[in-house]
């Protein structure tokens, strides 16, 4: 008997009273101004959310917010400031050293400032290895809580890897002192369009 059968047989060998699945009827308070509340949440988790209209274009936004960067990577169309398209790289390691990565998010979550992304490029490394990550997000695509998030069709979509990214990478493993930028992006900017 292999281990699979052994484990399943063992579970079957003693009767356990089956309990029902609870109803998913959690009532959560809705925010008055979703965009403001989302911005606030992103701030709490160490990132920033800005409105595209305040900058005009992504190109201008990058120039203003990240004036001294060299490598700007994206596979999105229409971004002229990009210095490279990561999909042209044969190896993910070639992304090491990217200053700004520009990606798209599907929707944001007001309660925790997270944005749902699914791998839309050859190397998902771009999401993490970029020193600064810019996530472009439609401001109409905000949900209040994770309950709503897990009802979105994007979460059930056909992807290899999907992630809720909430702010920049962080750690407090040395004496509980918060340090931004453990392994992933040191800055996360959500651009609401």
């Amino acid at each position: 008997m292999n281990s699979r059968e052994k484990i399943l047989k063992k579970i079957k060998s003693f009767p356990i009273e089956k309990t029902p699945m609870p109803k998913f009827d959690v009532k959560a308070i809705a925010s008055e101004d979703r965009i403001e509340a989302f911005k606030q949440s992103v701030k709490v988790v160490g990132g920033q959310a800005v409105m595209l209209k305040d900058y005009g274009t992504i190109d201008n936004l990058v120039t203003v917010l990240f004036p001294d960067v060299k490598r700007i990577a994206t596979n999105l169309e229409g971004i002229n400031c990009a210095t490279e398209n990561p999909d042209n790289f044969s190896m993910a390691s070639m992304l090491n050293g990217v200053d700004v990565g520009i990606v798209e998010g599907h929707f944001g979550v007001v309660e925790n400032g997270a944005v749902w992304v699914t791998q839309a490029m050859k190397h998902k490394a771009l999401y993490f290895i970029s020193e600064a990550l810019i996530v472009i997000l439609d401001a109409d695509q905000l949900v209040e809580t994770m309950h709503e998030a897990y009802k979105r069709e994007e979460v059930y979509g056909d992807y290899e890897y999907g992630c809720f990214i909430s702010g920049p990478s962080k750690t407090a493993d040395i004496e509980q002192a918060l340090v931004i930028g453990a392994h992933g992006a040191k800055a996360v900017t959500i651009v609401l369009t």
Binding site: N112, A114, M146, K151, F164
Partner: peptide, 25 residues
Amino acid sequence: LGIFTRLLARSATGQPITTYTAHYK
């Protein structure tokens, strides 16, 4: 997960969610 992702990081460190909640499909 709508329930658990709301509870995990808040209980663990007081964050609203972990920075990365990665789904491998």
